[in-house]
Write a protein that binds this DNA or RNA. Structure first.
Length: 469
RNA sequence: GUCCCCAUCGUCUAGUGGCCUAGGACACCGGCCUUUCACGCCGGUAACCGGGGUUCGACUCCCCGUGGGGACGCCA
């Protein structure tokens, strides 16, 4: 098959936000498609008229966009294609490959429960299979599945998997409301959209043989399948809200960079030797389904956090500042001075694991009057340290070289002159300028704040010491 | 219960019969650097689920067991 003919799709159902697991599936599809220069189709599977919402559709599209997973076609909406689905259902009925069924949901449910308690597989018992029923208001359509033989799936990730056809059952392909069910619509749409590779979650493995039978009944050639293993939570149970944030956009709100999430997700199940850090281009070049593991992976938020920190450190300044704006705005910090915030981010980028942390840590740069941490003030805003601070204000206006290096030289000389260690002067200054004992390098802080504000803040600290508290 | 899948450090993983005294990364623990905190650097603890085979030789192949996950909807 020529690689330029590869067509893949991501087919979320709009019944919630884009989940970490869904995002990884989308990512694998995207990487595989870009790697082979194919076409990536986005199709929204909204045939569940009750649960599908437009907000969810938008949320999923937003998350895809944020992650950088652009699609080449779509989004197509499955519900808009019901006429086609019905036509195909009719075709199967006409050919005797599907039939109407009037078993009620409640009696089916009762039979299911009974089978389960009796230790049998809860499959449809075929009550209506040979009744020759015709269309009626609450009749559904069932697909006539062969009961003998074996259906094998050639999975690009898991290898060959075979199923005894007796395990399959006469699944419903059209509901009473006239809408197709998943297993049917997905086959019709994938076939008609020319999808060549279906890359989806592991949880679809058992649906595949049924779908293969439907492809066959409809006279379509089945695509190639690749089932990617699930993502589990720390207790090895399927990842859910219990394990923390699972929505992609929640990570944006928590101050994660899309690149970090993407790189974390890709390594969950896929690897390339010992390599840990990849550029997007490398990922596209090196990605392959053969290198995707077969076993489920536990999502590790700490590794994502580390990756996020790595990306914050390496991010181009322009992009970092842009990503930071919403977080500053939320805190009502005036981030309009480009030169200033550029220095702020430079000071903080090695000290923040998330943009939220960075925004919080940057507070003192923006505040008119710093808030003193009580313990820090108690220890360093004392007459003894105050004398160091006085010495600093006295000389500071005379410093010609007001730069990081110049200030460091100045402070070291001052410490020596006053017979103390630099760290004591630095800590006192730190509290006076930032309110805390933890901050970026004191010389960096002084440069970023600027001479005027440094003097103001030292004087305010001095006043506080003078007032005796 | 039935069917399907999976199984290397706590976690993500490398490993495709000898290169394994099992490698990397996160986390953790030491140390260095140092004006605090980070960053960075150096070092350490830590794993082949169990039992049978096959083979001169199994982490690697086969079988059984155990454990985990998934599926069994007029959800997708």
């Amino acid at each position: 098959m020529a690689s330029d003919q590869i067509r893949t799709r991501f087919a979320p159902s709009p019944t919630g936000f884009l989940h970490i697991g869904g995002a990884r599936t989308a990512l694998f599809n995207w990487l595989y498609t870009r790697r082979h220069e194919g076409t990536f189709v986005l199709r929204v599977e909204d045939t569940d008229q009750v649960r599908s919402t437009e907000e969810s559709t938008q949320a999923i599209l937003d998350a895809m966009t944020w992650l950088g997973l652009n699609w080449d076609e779509g989004p197509y909406f499955q519900a808009e294609r019901v006429a086609i689905h019905r036509e195909m259902v009719q075709k199967l009925i006409d050919e005797g490959k599907a039939y109407y069924c009037t078993c009620s949901p409640s009696e089916l449910e009762a039979k299911r429960k009974k089978a389960l308690t009796e230790g049998r597989k809860p499959k449809y018992d075929g009550t209506c299979r040979n009744r020759g029923l015709s269309r009626s208001p609450d009749a559904v359509v069932r697909f006539l599945c062969p009961e003998v033989g074996v259906t094998v799936m050639h999975d690009l990730i898991k290898g060959n998997i075979s199923f005894n056809n007796e395990e399959l059952d006469d699944l419903i392909i059209e509901r009473a409301d006239g809408y197709p069910t998943y297993n049917f619509a997905v086959v019709v749409d994938d076939a008609q959209m020319g999808i060549t590779h279906v890359i989806r979650g592991d949880d679809h493995v058992n649906n595949t043989p049924k779908q293969i039978r439907i492809y066959e009944a409809l006279g379509y050639e089945a695509p190639l399948f690749g089932h990617v293993p699930m993502i589990l939570g720390s207790d090895k149970a399927r990842l859910s809200k219990r394990h923390g944030a699972t929505s992609v956009m929640a990570y944006q709100e928590m101050g994660y960079l899309p690149e970090a999430l993407v790189k974390d997700l890709v390594r969950l199940g896929w690897s390339h030797g010992d390599q840990e850090i990849f550029t997007l281009e490398e990922l596209v070049r090196k990605f392959s389904l053969e290198a995707v593991g077969k076993s489920a992976a536990v999502f590790n938020p700490e590794k994502l956090l580390w990756l996020n920190q790595q990306y914050i450190m390496a991010y181009p300044e322009e992009k970092l500042v842009e990503a930071m704006h919403p977080f500053w705005e939320k805190r009502v910090f005036d981030a309009s001075n480009r030169r200033f915030i550029s220095k702020v981010t430079a000071d903080l980028r090695t000290r923040a694991k998330t943009l939220v942390e960075m925004a919080d840590a940057s507070a003192f740069y923006f505040q008119q009057e710093v808030e003193y941490d009580p313990a820090a003030a108690a220890k360093f805003l004392t007459p003894e340290y105050g004398s160091h601070l006085e010495a600093v204000v006295e000389r500071i206006s005379g410093i010609g070289d007001y730069t990081k290096d110049g200030l460091e030289t100045f402070l070291r000389a001052l410490a020596e002159e006053r017979g103390t260690k630099l760290k004591w002067i630095a800590q006192a200054l730190r509290v006076a300028l930032t309110g805390k004992t933890i901050s970026p390098g004191i010389d960096e802080v002084m440069v970023t704040l600027g001479k005027e504000r440094v003097i103001e803040r030292i004087e305010r600290a001095l006043a506080r010491i003078g007032a005796g508290n």
